[in-house]
Amino acid sequence: MIEIKNLTKTYGQIKALDDISFEVNDGEVLGFLGLNGAGKTTTMNIITGFIPPTSGTVTVEGFDVMEKPEEVKKHIGYLPEHPPLYMDLTVREYLNFVAKLRKVEPDKIKANMEYALESVKILDVADRLIMNLSKGYKQRVGFAQALIGNPKILILDEPTVGLDPTQVIEIRSLISNLKKKHTIIFSSHILSEVSAVSSRIVIIDSGRIIAQGDTRSLSRSIGGKNLRVSILGPKSSVLSAIKNVYGVKSVELAEVHDDVCTFDIEQAENEDIRKALFYEMAKRSYPIYALKSLDDNLEDIFLGIVKRGGAKGGRS
């Protein structure tokens, strides 16, 4: 259980965090979403006791980070944005060092290391020097480090940045597996990634929380309102056909390419027109070539939320 209350952090004139409050319950996976520089890393650095807040409190498992930092640190495994690796050690030596640093009991160190190595699937490189590993492996070694000592809480700062798509999927499935045993906070700037694994989302922008709530309702309320659809057919008749579909608020021609017309459609509030659109076009034999939501990038979501003055689930 992590409680964050009225957290503020200023660097001189710059306000990195502005009165942030949220909670993370046991067994929850919290997705921490924000653009670069929004304050994600600062928040995580404060929770882990690496830097102090200017004001506000963080309580982890009942211990205040400022008052009992050593107790708090025992419960947290932290994977910072740049994995803190010693290039001149082998993976095993490194994890052994971390285990001693974390004050893992000597007879449990071996089991701990094996668990970490197995969880992130790096047994095959366990005896190689870290400097010779690829970026994906280095990231996983960093991940393994966070698992040492079996901490109750895992804090992962952008764990998938810079990895190739297969590695991203692996890390995601790893987080899904770990959520049975750990409470997890992980940050990202990709909405689809956060919604894929987390049960709750906190969105932060310029040091302030602009939306928070459970993943499903938040995704629905902040995404999927605008659609882009490509349809093969004469543009004027396709256009009038789209206008015919129930739930279409407005439609605009974006481009025409080889008789395939692309339209941007704004849907009415709380409507999903996709099914109706499909049947309407099928009836008229205009095949749909592509259909996608336009709101899946963060900039649009932020703009959308700011315009609407906060999403469902509350603005803090």
Binding site: T48, K73, K74, I76, P84
Partner: peptide, 9 residues
């Protein structure tokens, strides 16, 4: 790597 040392107990 300072983070590792300073966030450990």
């Amino acid at each position: 790597t300072e983070v590792l040392l300073l966030t450990s107990p």
